[in-house]
Design a protein around this nucleic acid. Structure first.
Length: 699
DNA sequence: AATCGCTCGCTTTTT
DNA sequence: GCGAGCGATT
């Protein structure tokens, strides 16, 4: 490629569009680009709302304008959505900068994706060189747990005199070992102490699990990172990748784990060309192996050559909201010092709203939401955030009753609905006949076939030489023969490359719709999901791309219960705090800001866990631009209280809002008189309350 | 061999 | 308030 832009012209154009940035941002966007120093490691500490994405987009644009090839940029973002947003903004910048003329017009960033997404692509590409089948399938969490369960049963671990950990726990332990790069005994000691006695059995189980995955050519989520990391331990491959990706930029660095930082070090051993962006105060993924140490220790790596830039000017929240948020995070332990200051107009102080219970929360939100909309604030500019997906159950009922459309993010995914898993399992099995979990599920979709028949069929197929010809001749009970033949026909159509995609999949979907009535209730809703899935599939080039994307980046909102409003309609946002990462709204309400929820009483084991919960509240609060309500229900429903029949406790304001910082808030109650609540059988509930409080005294 | 119904144990956040 | 697992039933 020839450079037709003269240096002077390029400099002038660049200076133009960099004018949008404040001095800190500009320093971050251009660090190492113009000095004699040649792009040493760069750490950008970007507090909440400080224009992180915008700054990163400017840096990408600056690199491209300086002559970097788009395919030599590796941009690791947290989600596919973040990656798309980045591409969009970079394109906009380049167009405005006038450097677009032909050369950079409509630039795509082919390597802008999540760690797992990039891992999957690199592994398919390098598969032949590392002894992997390029057609490997990817197991989602549930599939991985099912596979580990097969090994668990085979090793007879499920019928021991003392209870052995469940499949989910086994997978969690395995995953923790992989992602934290720590030995099994240490992980058990610190994170799963109640499983210590099973160390040897678990070690054997994990070996069996790894062997099963290899025999079936399937990879779980962790493998996408692990194989990538192991691959880069070979110097040749590491330098090949390091040369291909001249610049590596990582977003949300505070949420990476040791395995991910090891990959980065292998790609960029001296840190040159490496940029990481993040905010230690927003680290909320320790539970899946992320370590805030990655970002805290970054300056000391690479022989202390890293440049550090801190962004402190907040463009999002009113000074009142920012002051309250700063007050919350200031009580945390270690962290980079940064005094965020607001560039926004004054607003009302955030509110601490006392309500009676769930229903009160819902009532307050309905009233406030409607009032704001009357005042001209679209529903889409308002969000309700919560710690756990099920916390919004009551609210969803009330919203529906009041005809307020909403979309919920987080919690149960489209992908996790049983009927969606069924159909995808059938497709996966057709793609990869060795995938036992998929086959096991698909075969049992037929009436009259259970686990026994399914196992026999899979054993037969595993023992036979490759070739699907004998699929139809498998020994199924006589009364299933016809149904079996129909399924086989679909599978063979899908497996043979002759059949056109997506028509082959649509026919499989038609077949599956015929089974739904027998398998589940609420058949109509499930059928709608299946149609949607088939439509989604038709937007992909082939089955492999479709399946990979469904495993790594499934559609977020589950259509089933929420009843997704039309896309152009206005709707309220409901989201878990985790899923709200990186977003902002004009008005935000946070549910259940009480001890036992934030912090969750499942996470008060040690100081580190409590600090993570504190950061979670901080993340929730800093999503708000103008208005922020923190809800304080007097009664908080705890679903995991065994035995007593008691489903709620008397809760108090979260410990993260101690009296010392209360002055940042305005305290209100809703409704003024509890009797005003419609449909609340006050007398009956009062009786339950009393009994519960008696018990709560002794807890 | 499949399926129904019962009991027991667990119950967060996501790539 | 749910699933996994087990025993009895068809």
């Amino acid at each position: 490629m020839t450079d037709t832009t003269t240096p002077s012209r390029s400099d002038r154009a660049e200076a133009d569009w960099l004018d949008d940035l404040n001095p800190e941002q500009r320093q971050a966007a251009t660090a190492g680009l113009h000095e004699a120093s040649d792009g040493g490691p760069l750490l950008i500490i970007a507090g909440a709302g400080t224009g992180k994405t915008n700054t990163l987009a400017h840096r990408v644009a600056a690199l491209l304008a300086a002559g970097a090839q788009a395919e030599s940029l590796l941009l690791l973002t947290f989600s596919r959505r973040a990656a798309d947003e980045m591409t969009r903004r970079v394109q906009g910048l380049l167009a405005r900068a006038g450097v677009a003329d032909g050369r950079l017009a409509g630039v795509q960033l082919p390597w802008s994706d999540t760690f797992h997404g990039v891992g999957a692509r690199l592994l398919r590409e390098f598969a032949p060189r590392i002894g992997l089948d390029p057609g490997f399938s990817i197991l989602d969490r549930e599939d991985a747990a099912d596979l580990i369960n097969l090994s668990r049963h085979e090793a007879r671990l499920s019928s021991l005199p003392r209870r052995f950990p469940q499949k989910g726990t086994c997978l969690a332990i395995y995953s923790a070992v992989v992602n934290t790069c720590r030995p099994l005994d240490e992980v058990l000691e610190t994170t799963f102490p109640w499983c210590r006695e099973w160390e040897e059995a678990l070690r054997g189980l994990f070996l069996a699990y790894v062997e099963a995955k290899q025999a079936q050519q399937v990879l779980d989520y962790d493998d996408l990172l692990l194989y990538w990391a192991r691959m880069t331990e070979h110097a040749g491959l590491a330098s090949e990748l390091g040369e291909r990706f001249v610049h590596v930029l990582v977003d949300e660095y505070q949420d990476t784990n040791l395995l991910q930082s090891a990959i980065l070090r292998a790609l960029k051993p001296d840190g040159r060309g490496l940029t990481v962006v993040g905010d230690d105060a927003q680290s909320i993924y320790a539970f899946r192996g992320a370590t805030v140490r990655n970002i805290l220790d970054f300056p000391d790596q690479f022989g202390g050559t890293a440049t550090r830039v801190t962004l402190t000017r907040n463009y999002r929240s009113s000074p009142q909201i920012l002051a309250a948020s700063n007050g919350v995070i200031a009580l945390a332990g270690e962290g980079f010092d940064k005094n965020l200051w607001s560039a926004r107009p004054e607003g009302p102080p955030p509110a601490l709203v006392s309500v009676h219970d769930d229903l009160g929360q819902a009532g307050h939100i309905v009233a406030r939401t409607l009032a704001r909309r009357e005042a001209g604030m679209r529903l889409k500019s308002q969000a309700v955030l919560f710690r756990a997906a099920h916390h919004s159950a009551r609210l969803e009922i009330e919203l529906r009753r009041h005809n307020i459309p909403f979309v919920k993010f987080g919690g149960l995914r489209f992908l996790e609905a049983a009927h969606v898993k069924d159909l995808l399992a059938a497709l996966r099995w057709a793609q990869n006949p060795r995938d036992r979990v998929a086959g096991f599920r698909a075969i049992q979709l037929l009436a009259g076939i259970g686990p026994k028949t399914a196992s026999t069929v899979l054993d037969n197929l595993a023992a036979a030489p490759p070739g699907a010809a004998l699929l139809a001749e498998q020994p199924v009970p006589a009364h299933c023969r016809e149904a079996w033949a129909a399924l086989c026909a679909h599978l063979e159509t899908l497996a043979s490359s002759a059949a056109p995609w997506p028509a082959s999949f649509e026919r499989l979907a038609d077949w599956y719709v015929g089974q739904i009535e027998r398998l589940y209730d609420a058949a109509a809703m499930r059928e709608a999901d299946i149609r949607q899935l088939a439509h989604l599939a038709s937007t992909y080039r082939d089955a492999t791309h479709f399946l990979t994307d469904m495993a790594l980046d499934p559609p977020e909102a589950s259509s089933g219960e929420a009843g997704v409003p039309l896309r152009d309609e206005d709707y309220l946002i409901l989201s878990t705090i985790h899923s709200a990462k990186g977003q902002e709204w004009r008005a935000v309400t946070v549910l259940n800001v009480v001890d036992g929820c934030i912090p969750s009483d499942l996470a008060t084991g040690n100081a580190a866990e409590i600090d993570e919960e504190r950061r979670l509240l901080y993340v929730a609060m800093t999503r708000a631009r103008e208005e922020l309500d923190l809800m304080l229900p007097k009664r908080f429903y705890v679903t995991h209280q065994a035995g007593l029949g008691d489903r709620h406790v008397y809760a108090s304001r979260s410990r993260f809002i101690p009296n010392a910082i209360r002055h940042h808030f305005q305290e209100t109650a809703w409704p003024p008189a509890p009797e005003a609540l419609r449909g609340s059988p006050a007398s009956r509930q009062a009786a339950i309350d009393l009994a519960a409080s008696m018990r709560a005294m002794w807890k």
